[in-house]
Design a protein around this nucleic acid. Structure first.
Lengths: 207, 207
DNA sequence: GTCTGAAGTTACTCGGAGTAAATAAATCTC
DNA sequence: GAGATTTATTTACTCCGAGTAACTTCAGAC
């Protein structure tokens, strides 16, 4: 078998879906019809698999969020739509998400995942609000948003198990609540940025 | 050796501090001058240890946050103070926090930790804003806050490693940024709750 | 044919979680 | 107080998964 990287990753995903978050490296290799050393040479150790699956997942989520952006919508509605799209995307890759979450809290993969997500969110901020990213504040903000989304998503997705096989609440519903909490702060930040585009390198506004 | 529960937990903490997040059950038992089966009988398996340490940690954080509440302060300032106290408390129990985080992402312990933290936050909301907790929204809100705090804290604490042995930013600094993002939403929610104390059991306000 | 190197597979090592069987201690019985 | 029975404790395992070393097989070169 040729076993190039992408085929192995596809097999890994199948294995994760069919077996669950505690798939073993042997099981992944077996699903790829390949032996373990090949898996190790082609992709790497477990952390590498996690990193790779994390990338796959984040790609899909970013795509889903990006294609939820419709022009001419009010910023707040865009925000809701983005969150909802995020949730739906994760819901469609439930096992993958649970795998990355359960397995990927070793500091290495976790850091990597967070950094990548943070970059994406800061980019969004910059696209919406102008020149952010000069101070360290945006890092804290993006970490906050990532963390909030992560736990909300995890708890939502988990309710698949405890309830029937449908989520008890819709993605839109959750996105709505989420936005109620997060949007006012985001809006305030964007407003400040828009008005004083150079004010963020020194002092912060009130204090 | 008597080896009651609290002694074992104290030993576990010492082991975590001296060895790190990947302490082994044998090492914990050794630190307690006790053999493994005793550890297993007294506390339980690894998840039980994680649960227990998680409880210890959450207790300390809750205490720290509680004792940061000074009367007569503006709500927003109380919020900042609480977040700052949270961060400082975690900073003082860095290894414990990292242990609970690294080890406790197995769905069992994680859920438990989140549920407990969520309860605490919802209680705070209720104390501040009146009768919350009738709809599911407060769950989403508290999950958001927990998640945001978690990642922000984790990234902050991690910077101990990459920088010197002092955190690059102060807890107050981070708390300030965090508040900029989160407070407006929290304030809005509290305001709505204060004005229409019975409005949350059915429809939400705008939509 | 056979030598050489890549590609792959078998068959291990290593380490940690969790436990069963063996041993020591303690309590009860007369 | 000696023997019997139950309870606490330790030793010594099993099991399983990550990661790897050493062996095998097949391609082409000559």
């Amino acid at each position: 078998m040729l076993a190039d990287r992408s085929q192995l990753l596809a097999a890994a995903e199948r294995a994760i879906v069919s077996i669950g978050t505690d798939v073993t490296m042997d099981q992944i290799a077996a699903e790829a019809a390949v032996t373990k050393p090949i898996l190790y040479r082609t992709i790497g150790d477990r952390d590498a698999v996690i990193d790779a699956m994390s990338d796959v997942l984040v790609d899909r989520i970013v795509d889903a969020v990006a294609s939820s952006r419709s022009i001419g919508t009010a910023p707040r509605d865009m925000f809701v739509a983005a969150v909802s799209a995020y949730l739906s995307a994760v819901g469609q890759h439930r096992d993958l998400y649970l795998f990355v979450n359960a397995a990927g809290q070793r500091m290495g993969p976790l850091r990597r995942r967070i950094d990548r997500s943070a970059r994406t969110i800061i980019d969004l901020f910059e696209a919406a609000g102008g020149g952010l990213g000069k101070t360290t504040s945006p890092l804290t903000w993006s970490h906050s948003i990532i963390g909030a989304l992560q736990i909300v998503t995890l708890m939502w997705i988990e309710s698949y198990d405890t309830e029937g096989d449908r989520p008890r609440r819709t993605a839109d519903d959750i996105a709505d609540d989420f936005t109620h909490l997060l949007w006012p702060g985001v809006e305030a930040i964007l407003a400040v940025e828009a008005v004083e585009p150079a004010a963020h390198s020194g002092e912060r506004a009130d204090h």
